[in-house]
């Protein structure tokens, strides 16, 4: 399952915005796999992991639409776990509907 490195771009660089977004993140159980780094003004580095590929995708989408968030840029993706699996399993992950 990929581990993603993200930059969460906030709508502005105010401390209040950061606090609001942090509170919203804490309230969303779906985003419990998100670890936040140290914010640089309006940009907040983060790592997202856990769950299936589908869950990761919907979490990124959820993050993107959170009030106070202007956008989410993905800067890093590791998919070695996926490629390390037996060919049949990789094949079903890459091509199956699951």
């Amino acid at each position: 399952m990929p581990v993603l490195g993200l930059v969460v771009v906030l709508e502005d660089a105010r401390a209040e915005t950061r606090a609001d977004v942090a509170a919203r993140l804490a309230a969303r159980a779906e985003l419990s796999g998100l670890s936040l780094g140290e914010a640089a003004a309006h940009r907040w580095p983060a790592v997202l992991e856990g769950g299936s590929a589908r869950e990761i995708e919907s979490r990124v989408e959820l993050l993107r639409t959170l009030p106070g968030v202007a956008g989410v840029d993905v800067v890093y993706a590791d998919f070695e776990d996926l490629l390390a699996r037996p060919p049949a399993a990789v094949s079903s992950e890459l091509h199956g509907e699951g």
Partner: peptide, 9 residues
């Protein structure tokens, strides 16, 4: 991943 994100941020 966090190092890459921090650098980009």
């Amino acid at each position: 991943a966090m190092a890459a994100a921090t650098a980009a941020a």
